[in-house]
Design a protein around this nucleic acid. Structure first.
Length: 373
DNA sequence: AATGCGGGGTC
DNA sequence: GACCCAGCATT
């Protein structure tokens, strides 16, 4: 989880993850849908798939117990040079170096390394330096502490902008501090401006049936949002809508390498069958409350969140009349016991409940607040 | 050696 | 907006 993701962001995900998958075995045998659901919102979803592959690898090849050497760890799916070094040094005390974004910044400044830190040559030089530091470590010192110290330095004093060199313990050894080149180092390749990113324009469909929203699951095991659920895209399902029907919602979002522009229109679906289109491999009706338990990419999640109370989201409203019509309230309401159904069960089973327009009744708005986040 | 892959905090 | 986060796998 910590690969390219801040600690503060990870923590709540990690808590839920460990509760859901307490052991390597539990993760290894879990349905991919559950794995992606627990990851949804974190991004870089191949990490989730690789983590499960890694768990299966550990179960199959190591009897469920993680190997301890960096070289062995490196062969596990999802564990690259950084993670192998981190586990080996911090968890098992091996004198294994590591270089992450923080360490790269610290070393580039301290040693005045002028190569692009992402480039092959830059990485090689950084790993060499990190290895030399590790080799110079006194025999009674903990290798993990050196690595964590370097990372922590990068996360605190040696910040990307405005480094606080005054209190830095390495200031007297630092080339960048000595020469006042903190702003020039590390050298990092210029990234594309947002307005230069390729734009993905998507037209998604808001289809309600029996108080539920229609979602589809993307099929591929690789590629953007692979295995995640989303609103159906026009042209990929057997849906109909008035040609002149206006877009009722929109959502813009910037990815690291794409700009996403989503528009939504209300549609109806002729048949709830998996389209022959290979883009999706499943289609389901899902109550909004249950949707939050699926692995849903951020764009669709944001649209569901933003527009579930919109005037045109009619079925959704009738699914939770306590908010919609104050009049009907007194009569029907009080009769019914409050928390009738918990809207538990996350995975949408294609069974009886969705058949007769029954199903997900009052799911709508109750739990929405406590789940996102 | 380069590219694909997310999402969000923070300045 | 721009920057970047306890990177990895694939091409």
């Amino acid at each position: 989880m910590l690969q390219q993701t801040r600690v503060a962001t990870v923590i709540p995900y990690w808590e839920r993850w460990m509760a859901r998958f307490p052991t390597v075995q539990a993760l290894a045998v879990a349905p991919l849908d559950d794995v992606l659901a627990a990851w949804a919102g974190l991004g870089y979803y191949s990490r989730a798939r690789n983590l499960q592959k890694g768990a299966q690898h550990v179960v199959d090849s190591w009897r469920g117990e993680l190997p301890r050497q960096a070289g062995e760890l490196r062969a596990i799916p999802g564990i690259g040079p950084y993670t192998a070094g981190a586990i080996a040094s911090i968890a098992y005390g091996e004198r294994a170096p590591l270089v992450d974004g923080n360490v790269a910044r610290v070393l580039a400044r301290v040693f005045g390394i002028a190569h692009d830190i992402k480039s092959t040559i830059g990485q090689r030089v950084l790993w060499e330096r990190a290895g030399e530091l590790m080799s110079a470590l006194p025999a009674d010192a903990a290798p993990g502490n050196l690595n964590q110290g370097l990372m922590e330095l990068g996360a605190t004093a040696c910040a990307p902008t405005g480094p606080r060199c005054l209190g830095c313990p390495l200031a007297s050894h630092c080339v960048a501090a000595r020469d006042g080149r903190q702003a020039e180092l590390p050298v990092v390749a210029k990234r594309k401006r947002v307005d230069e990113l390729p734009v993905i324009e998507r037209e998604l469909l808001w289809i309600e049936q029996g108080g539920a929203i229609v979602l589809v699951r993307r099929a591929a095991t690789s590629g953007l949002w692979a295995g995640l659920w989303e609103l159906p895209e026009v042209g990929h399902v057997d849906a109909t809508f008035a040609p002149a029907a206006a877009f009722v919602a929109h959502h813009d979002q910037v990815l690291s390498h794409r700009r996403l522009r989503v528009r939504v229109r209300v549609a109806t679906l002729a048949t709830l069958v998996v389209p022959t289109d290979p883009t999706y491999d499943r289609i389901e009706r899902v109550a909004l409350a249950d949707a939050a338990d699926l692995g849903i990419a951020a764009a669709t999640a944001a649209i569901l969140r933003k527009y579930q109370d919109a005037p045109w989201a009619t079925v959704t409203r009738s699914a939770a009349p306590d908010v919609a019509e104050p009049r009907a309230r007194s009569r029907t309401r009080s009769a019914r016991p409050r928390r009738a159904r918990r809207a538990r069960c996350t995975r949408t089973r294609r069974s009886s409940s969705t058949a007769a327009g029954r199903g997900p009744r009052r799911a709508g708005r109750r739990r929405r607040a406590d789940r996102r986040r």
